[in-house]
Design a protein around this nucleic acid. Structure first.
Lengths: 190, 190
DNA sequence: CTGTCATTTCAGTAATTTCTGAAATAACAG
DNA sequence: CTGTTATTTCAGAAATTACTGAAATGACAG
């Protein structure tokens, strides 16, 4: 591996981290390298930087493209492929969320739905279905929320984050106003 | 494997899904089995249900305990260990979030912080640090939000979810009221 | 066409992870 | 203590996943 020390730490960390997710070491390293690189890199530059085989780079880039985490670029008068990551970290976050949902959540949701359609043939199955139904309900709630907030533009999303739990304070306030309004009207009527 | 068909589908799915996360097949299967089981199970029951070795069950349960995803129970007059999952799916969600943060996010945050402390020795390193700083900023925002929201009781959290992006509508409304108030006062002064 | 350069594919190998059986440890009852 | 039952540990086997080099494919220039 042939990199400035500071970049190397980052790349190595992403490699190790990769294994904790489903991603493998090389894929993590390549991503990290592209992420901090000022310009797009071609496959041979990645080979040199990370000291891995050309074919491994090819396969790992394909993997990263499947995740939409990497962009293919072309320079004029150069027919090699160059790669970068999107600049905007918020966009990266969105992509990551979208892909993980697609791979990890959606399949589970569809398996749960399928099982819940079936007729339980015993008390054990009945109970199992009940538990699965709870899980299904929770996941649906979460994905609905996600589908909803992912539409937001970045600055609104940022606001939402900054606000955090304070939102519920706001809600309490709103509830009070509404209920005050209601009780007032009730009083007037009564 | 010796399970009601409906439970078996669920268990097998969790096994496959496990590999997409960092978790292995057996661990996923055991978790799924305990999750839908009406009563706590002991290690031998898991061996029978899943058709795997006793030692594998022992190691996998240890793993699940390390994740706080499984509870150890004791029945009167029986010195074997019995295991369940927590009943409340919201609680499970919290645990999962907490553990994944601990394992996947916190280490990255600390590596980033460490690297950002250092003096860049070249333009390449300077640029890399800038990118890492963006990533660090985003992750910090997200974790702050998480720390904030995780304190909420379940029903408040549920409200927050149901509300979703509508919160920003609420904010706009609030902003209008505030700015109206301000411009009114300004007008009065002027 | 032919030659050159870039990329991909893939069979075989290397490395890692998972799983097992056997032995060790532990916890208890008599 | 001794025997019984429950659990854990761990070295090696099995399975899976990652990686490589060599060959194939593709894309283009002349």
């Amino acid at each position: 591996m042939n990199l400035p020390p500071l970049v190397q730490s980052f790349v190595l960390h992403f490699g190790e981290m990769g294994s904790r997710w489903g991603i493998n070491r090389t894929v993590g390293q390549i991503y990290a390298l592209l992420y901090v690189s000022p310009d797009p890199l071609n496959a041979d530059q990645i080979v040199d930087a990370l000291g891995i085989s050309r074919s491994n780079v090819s396969m790992s880039l394909r993997e990263l493209q499947a995740w939409n985490l990497v962009l293919l670029k072309h320079l004029p008068d150069d027919r090699r492929d160059f790669f970068t990551t999107p600049d905007d970290v918020w966009q990266i976050l969105r992509t990551l969320a979208e892909e993980r949902k697609k791979r990890e959540v959606d399949p589970t949701l569809s398996v749960l739905r399928e099982i819940l359609m079936q007729q339980p043939a015993s008390e054990a199955e009945r109970h199992a279905q009940e538990r699965m139904s709870e899980m299904h309900g929770l996941i649906e709630r979460l994905t609905t929320w996600y589908e909803d907030v992912k539409q937001l533009e970045t600055d609104r999303l940022a606001t939402l984050l900054t606000l955090g739990a304070k939102v519920t304070k706001l809600l309490e306030a709103k509830d009070k106003i509404v209920s005050l309004g209601r009780s007032k009207r009730t009083t007037e009527k009564g």
